[in-house]
Nucleic acid binder design. Sequence first.
DNA 1: GGCGTCGTTCGATAGTTGTCGAACAAGGGT
DNA 2: ACCCTTGTTCGACAACTATCGAACGACGCC
Lengths: 101, 101
Amino acid sequence: MEPHEPDLTAVPVTSVLAALADDVRLQIVRALAEGGESACGSFDFGVSKATRSHHLKVLREAGLTRTRAAGTSRLVRLRRDELDKLYPGLLDAILTQRPPA
Amino acid sequence: MEPHEPDLTAVPVTSVLAALADDVRLQIVRALAEGGESACGSFDFGVSKATRSHHLKVLREAGLTRTRAAGTSRLVRLRRDELDKLYPGLLDAILTQRPPA
DNA sequence: GGCGTCGTTCGATAGTTGTCGAACAAGGGT
DNA sequence: ACCCTTGTTCGACAACTATCGAACGACGCC
């Protein structure tokens, strides 16, 4: 199975934004931004593994992540440099935790 | 009818992103960023006025725009300064037209 | 080889969303 | 007063999406 990781410039902005416009996926992206490359299973945000797999697929197909096999696991990482180049400031703006009040 | 324009800090990031993750709404935001305050009717992007009204409502309730009545029309404007303050770089990153290739 | 782990895929389902036409409301002009 | 313009709201409908359990596949290990 090709992991279907598109060229970021070929992904419409709306798809990138839609991929980020979900709470679970945003948590995944935040975790990746902080923790670097991580196994799929490390994102346990109260959803089933089927749902998690679905969200990772959305992120991957929106050009936000890359996935590679590593034994029985799969390692996911943010395509941060590409994102920062194409959408400078986007990730920073989104990932910055806002003041609670 | 109060226009229901929330405090931006009270709007979840995902709602802001979701509001921007639609082609019609993104066109509206682009037009507002370029043209400043505009009447609702000036956004004729091939959708009915009902649909346009719906999209403007989504943008307003996501904290992206402000609306004020002006005679028979309604003028809409981007809350750019607030957005730039809370999400620095977000609008710029999104509104910048990417190279076609 | 067999088993457990990790992850994807399938089918189903409930909820959300984009779209429309039609009906309604508010203003301005003649 | 009438009408036309401008927008909003109300169903209705189709399309998409988030979610799950279950079945399946791939890999390492014992």
